[in-house]
Design a protein around this nucleic acid. Sequence first.
DNA 1: AATCCGTGGTG
DNA 2: TCACCAAGGAT
Length: 352
Amino acid sequence: MRDAELSNALLAWYDTHGRTLPWRVGPADRAAGIRADPYRVWLSEIMLQQTTVAAVREYFRLFTERWPSVEALAAAEDGDVMAAWAGLGYYARARNLLKCARVVASDLGGVFPDTVDGLRRLPGIGPYTAGAIAAIAFDRPATVVDGNVERVMARLHAIKSPLPAAKSELTECAAALTPQTRPGDHAQAVMDLGATICTPRRPACGICPWRDPCAARAAGIADTLPRKLPKAAKPIRLGIAYVARRADGAWLLQRRPDKGLLGGMLGWPGSDWGEAPTPAPPLDAGWRDAGAEARHTFTHFHLRLRVEVAEVPADTPPGEGMFVAKESFRPADLPTVMRKVYDIASSALLSD
DNA sequence: AATCCGTGGTG
DNA sequence: TCACCAAGGAT
């Protein structure tokens, strides 16, 4: 089957079976020539980096409700955006989201670039996201390669060499398939195929629009592709978190530095995280063990945090941190590991 | 080029 | 319980 036929078959499938998503334009509007809002496409694509649709849905709804335009987002307070992003992970995305919004609002008149090269220059926008926005929002014939596309291409052509080395070959396959007509729908169609039919485990080959031309299906190896190099084992790191509650109910928190793990997010003061962490209480107090440890797994290590708690007088100075008033403190504003620490600490403090 | 950076679901 | 995985980018 020629590339053009493959693309046509996929588009026909997409017109019937493509997913309805909050940041997408539906088939009826699409037929009427209505295009997606570049701001919403950009926002969704940033949120979807290494993140599932299910996890993104509610965040996308909250963000677009609170900040309906790139100008509104650009005018937001850093802390508000970081708090709104809390729980979604990869917090550099949120920092770059704000940077990008401010560049677009201030330097580009609130208008997103409509080319891959223009988009690629913006913070937080790499090869995938630039192609996705160019294709989806502006119908540019960009080649879009994400994890779904890699998997679909590896199976369609039965490419057995493992990722990440196979990336360039998979990109060439995807480029050859990209049509000049409806490239935005094509890009979304390949990703939908990967998300709903050509899934990592137990692909539904029987109902796939590409079941006949698929080389991996013919060879009976679809569910073994793409091959990937084994990943390094995750080491275990230890640490201590300190949760101080002032007599008036305020909590002692710190803003983490912009660089590195959980950069820019709120967190509890604590020790370093390693094999033998050095205790580092943020202030003198009657610290006591909360009786449970917070366990959390990051991308490249497991963490076990011992939790220590203290009740401190109303006139306690905040030291390196800041006391956040009871009324303005929301556990949901914290990254997940810090929220786990809060859950343990609060039950220990309240059970006295 | 290899490493760093989150999280929640899944089998 | 645990390894693997999901719409990557920055350095």
